[in-house]
């Protein structure tokens, strides 16, 4: 759902290209926007997502930092309070552990603690997702952590078009926003992206596929898994609806609940750990809102509760798959 009507060209872009386009447009639009992070300039990050930005915007705005995540994130918080709109790049979501004080005790609380006097318009881009054979410290999906903290907003886009529109909204937001990008999606996920300047508001879910028998709620890379499962379910006569919340906070509870009121069944699929995680929160919101319309409990599928292992057969076993979603959905639909 795009909030601007004037469409121009729509191209196929990868997830990574759409993110770069969003950043380039915002850098062009607002001189207060700058990028800070490790190897963001000439290298264009380890994932090459920012490649070329330094050529257009220069090293004063695309700024390579030392390997000091807490240092440059804290600097970003202060810069955001004093007139800039910094976009801080934390290469791997696993490194959130290194910046938690800056994010949780500083960025998230400054507006509230100051009685609304100071604002922190900071965007923190980081990554999530396993199956890159990167081991336990470069593969986690920790998006539940910031979602737990009042004062932060959390975005988990799944498509290139959503990523562009949501990132532009995040940069224009007056609050600290943590923006999670799935690493596998950077090159693998392609989709139509309008070339014009559009934004997608934070807090509006998107129904990626309509259906009547079961709702598959997916986040980030798990939206693709849900869509793949829905195609397979169609072949056995099950009509699955796929809903993507797109932002964990603010959360579009209404769209989630309405979908499940219609279908009576729901599986929530997320790449984070299920224990005390995003799936639990979404399942709870749905159960509270659609209790009398549910045929049975809302089911959850998340990462296996282990550190992400290195060996491919082990790592692959940690992430929910289309086949697993199909099997669970068939059980729930008795088909």
């Amino acid at each position: 759902m795009l909030d601007t009507v004037t469409t121009t060209a729509v191209r196929e872009l990868t997830f990574g290209e759409a993110i770069r386009e969003a950043l380039a447009e915002e850098l062009r639009r607002d001189p207060r926007v700058c990028l800070l992070g490790e190897d963001v300039a000439e290298a264009g990050t380890a994932f090459k997502v920012l490649k070329g930005l330094v050529d257009e915007f220069g090293k004063n705005r695309i700024i390579d930092t030392p390997i000091s995540e807490a240092g440059f994130t804290g600097l970003g918080v202060g810069a955001a309070m004093t007139g800039l709109r910094p976009v801080v790049d934390i290469m791997f979501g696993d490194f959130l552990t290194l910046i938690m004080d800056q994010l949780v005790n500083q960025a998230a609380k400054i507006h509230y603690m100051s009685g609304g006097a100071w604002k922190v318009p900071l965007v923190l881009r980081t990554t999530m997702g396993a199956t890159r054979r990167s081991g336990a410290q470069h593969s986690q999906s920790l998006h539940a952590w910031p979602a737990h903290i009042p004062g932060l907003k959390v975005v988990v886009p799944s498509t290139p078009a959503d990523a562009k529109g949501l990132l532009k909204s995040a940069i224009r937001d007056d609050n600290p926003v943590v923006f999670f990008e799935d690493k596998i999606s950077y090159a693998k996920v392609k989709g139509p992206v309008p070339s014009h300047d559009y934004t997608i508001p934070l807090g509006v879910a998107d129904v990626k596929r309509e259906g009547t028998d079961i709702t598959l709620v997916g986040t980030s890379s798990m939206v693709q898994v849900a869509l793949g499962a829905a195609t397979m379910l169609e072949q056995v006569g099950i009509s699955a609806e796929v809903v993507d919340p797109r932002t964990l906070w603010p959360l579009d509870e209404k769209t989630l609940v309405e979908s499940v009121k219609k279908t009576s069944r729901c599986i929530v699929i997320d790449e984070g750990y299920a224990r005390y995680g995003v799936t639990g929160e979404l399942a709870s919101v749905i159960a509270e809102g659609a209790f009398y319309d549910l045929d049975g409990p809302v089911r959850r599928m998340g990462a296996r509760h282990v550190p992400i292992p290195f060996a491919p057969p082990l790592e692959d076993a940690t992430v929910p798959t289309e086949q697993q979603v199909v099997e669970l959905a068939r059980q729930m639909c008795h088909k």
Binding site: G74, L75, G76, V77, G78, A79, M81, T82, L84, Q102
Partner: peptide
Amino acid sequence: AGIATGAAFS
């Protein structure tokens, strides 16, 4: 420390 340094950066 981070906030003050960020203000100096701005």
